[in-house]
């Protein structure tokens, strides 16, 4: 059973439909028991970090998520919430990745919206994806690069397009909206 964490986070339907296209019907839940026994957990998110953390706390998910032991995939805001701290509303996040989330300097247009390429691929999450593949982004905050960075994108500066630590994976872009490349990444996650 593939679970999608349901906590008022916006793009849950898009993620669900993307899994449907791969022939999988996920369970949308915030129930601890269901999440603990899922084979894989997807942690999506669109919106604002402070509000999202509040929702997670209300459902006690802030304690549960870091304890999950199966493969977990954070998407977009999900990635940022899995980091240490976000400059967005000065929010303490889940701290799974010891990484800071910063706001893009407005040297170019912010938010970073559209298709950009991923480089320095180094994880089985990107099996059969080629260097410089295009993925779809919509975000104003980014995770810095560091030892847990498994792929990078450059916009204004280099940032973590994806992070990994143990069983925790997270992508800043939207695989559910990234055409065939995104489908490949989701398939790779599902076959971890």
């Amino acid at each position: 059973m593939i679970a999608i964490i349901d906590y008022n986070a916006g793009n849950i339907q898009s993620v669900r439909f993307a899994l449907n296209r791969l022939g999988i019907e996920p369970v949308l839940t915030s129930d601890a028991e269901q999440l603990l026994k899922a084979e894989k957990v997807i942690f999506p998110g669109v919106g604002e970090a402070g509000t999202a953390m509040k929702f997670l706390k209300e459902k006690n998910l802030d304690k549960l998520i870091p304890q999950l032991s199966q493969p977990v995939l954070g998407i977009c805001l999900g990635l940022q919430l899995m980091c240490q701290h976000s400059e967005e509303s000065n929010t303490d996040c889940l701290g799974i990745f010891p990484v800071m989330v910063k706001k893009f300097e407005r040297v170019l247009k912010v938010p970073h919206v559209g298709w950009n390429n991923i480089s320095k691929l180094k994880s089985s999450l990107f099996r059969d994806c080629s260097e410089n593949s295009f993925v779809y982004y919509v975000h104003s905050y980014y995770a810095e690069t560091g030892e847990h960075t498994i792929v990078e994108t450059n916009y204004i500066n280099s940032f973590s397009a994806a992070l990994q630590k143990n069983n925790f994976y997270a992508v800043q872009f939207h695989p559910e909206k990234s055409s065939t490349v995104g489908e490949q990444i989701l398939k790779n996650f599902l076959s971890l």
Binding site: R21, K177, S178
Partner: peptide
């Protein structure tokens, strides 16, 4: 559309 389309 959402179920069938893999772009935004």
């Amino acid at each position: 559309i959402a179920l069938n389309l893999n772009i935004p």
